[in-house]
Every structure is written in C-alpha cells, then in structure tokens.
Design a protein around this nucleic acid. Structure first.
Length: 262
DNA sequence: GTTCTCACA
DNA sequence: TGTGAGCA
C-alpha cells in the first residue's frame, strides 16, 4: 500500500483548501514529497507534520512569507518571543471585542429606552460625567463636514459616541465623554430629559422652547446649561434620521427625590 | 481528480 | 492571503 496521499486527501485531513496547499508551495513553505508522472503532488507523513507546524505559525499571525525562515532557523528563544508577541495581539483583540460588546449593548439599551419613551419628558439620574471639549462654535452655525475636518481633532469612533452639545449664551460647544477628569464635568443629579427624532433646525429651537416651558409648567428649576445629546448610532433604526436627547439639570425638589432616588 | 492561470476581494 | 472560475 502506498504511503503517500494526494493533495485533496491532505487538504481534507488538515482542514485546509487544496488551493491553500498549492499557495504554500508557491511561497516555498511546503513542498510535496514528490510529483508523480501525472503531475499530481503526493505528500507523506513528513509533510503532514510540516503542515501542522505551518498552520500553527499562521494562527500565531506569522505571514506566510516569513514561515520558511521560522521553520529553518528559529531558536527556542525566538519562538518564545514570537509567542509573547502573539499573546499581546490576542489581548488587544480581546479588548477590542470587549469594547464592541459594550457598544452593542449600549445601542440596544438606548434604542429600547427611546422606543419606550419617545417624545416623553422624563427625570433621569446622571452620575457625575466628564468631558473633553471638541468643537466650539457660534450657536447659529450648522455643523458640516468641512468643520469636522478642519476644526476638529480626529476622534476615534466619533459616531459611536454620545456627542454633547452645550448651549451657553451665543455659543454651542461640542463635548465628548471621557473616563478621566476632562475640560468639563456635569454634576450628578436629576436631569429633565426628552428624546426626539431628526428635528430640523427651527424645529429644534421649538423643541428647546417647549422644553423650558414644560420645566416651568412643572415648576422644575433648571440649574445648569441645556445639553443636547446626539446619538447618531441610533440612526440605524430609523433610516438615517438623527436621534437627539435634550437634558438639563434640575434643582432637587421633593418630587424628583421621591421618584428617582429609591 | 488535478494542474495552471487569471481575476478579484 | 487567499478564493473562485474556466480550461486542459
């Protein structure tokens, strides 16, 4: 009985594609034991072990081009370094996935919150939060792409963030939340809040008027600047209509204490 | 069933 | 760094 196997048998055995095996050969990392008269590649047990070695290195992130060098000349020490390097890459990937996981959860929760209370005033408790200043502009200026490119520092994952617009007298300042103490902080407390969808500019001004009217009607005392929070990631759910939330800190009252501090 | 080559992501 | 299609 013949001790060599064909390319498709090797591919099946090692769970790779036939194409991939020929690609490895082209790059000089895996030669067949011999080539038959019919030009078929034949592989022995030696190539099975070699291939296992190659696939392990690939899993560790070694480019195919470098695998030949690894297999012929790497010392134990070099392999240790390689493994440590791979370990750091895996850690970074795990961190990336963890952040993605958190983001997905956040989107789900925000969307649920929005669909439960669309256009409804609520009192929400906020813990102290910290921000870095991102863009400052005239309150009548409209945010546009040029402004983003020209004036703004590049922000990673900008449209996955809650962008906080702070309205104070004639300026509006855009802030991004940070973990550590930043340029600005919002104190913990109860915030009057309403979530709304894709308001045109004048409609937004109307919403803001309504917001203050409602607060006055309910005898809430606004104790801080008006904050507009843009949650562009929620547009996923509404054909690119933008989601906003208006918030303002209100002074503690008997009512709000009872409702939200239980 | 396998080889080779070209186009493609 | 591979994959898919077409051909011999």
């Amino acid at each position: 009985m013949k001790s060599e196997i064909t390319i498709s048998e090797l591919a099946k055995l090692m769970n790779v594609s036939v194409h991939q095996l020929r690609y490895f050969e082209e790059k000089g990392v895996l030669q067949p034991a011999y080539t038959g008269n019919n030009q078929y590649r034949m592989y022995s047990i030696d190539q099975v072990y070699q291939l296992a070695h190659i696939l392990l290195l690939r899993r560790l992130g070694v480019p195919v081009q470098s695998i030949k060098e690894c297999m012929t000349s790497y010392s134990a020490d070099q392999y240790r370094k390689l493994l440590h390097h791979s370990l750091r890459e895996v850690d970074a990937e795990m961190q990336r996935l963890k952040e993605l996981h958190q983001f997905i959860n956040k989107v789900l929760h925000e969307q649920e919150s929005f669909s439960l209370h669309p256009n409804q005033y609520q009192i929400k408790w906020r813990d102290t939060s910290y921000f870095t200043r991102w863009i400052e502009m005239d309150s009548h200026t409209k945010l546009n792409a040029t402004l983003l490119v020209g004036q703004a520092e590049r922000v990673p994952n900008l449209f996955e963030s809650d962008i906080h617009y702070l309205y104070e007298s004639n300026t509006v300042t855009l802030y991004l939340e940070t973990q550590a103490t930043g340029d600005f902080s919002l104190p913990e407390g109860n915030y009057l809040s309403i979530q709304c969808l894709d308001n045109e500019d004048d409609e937004l001004e109307h919403m803001i008027e309504q917001f203050y009217d409602y607060a006055a009607g309910q005898s809430y005392v606004i104790a801080g600047p008006l904050i507009l929070i843009e949650k562009s990631y929620l547009s996923l759910f509404s054909q690119s209509k933008l989601h906003y939330e208006l918030q303002a800190l209100i002074e503690p009252t008997a009512n709000s204490e009872r409702n939200d501090r239980q």
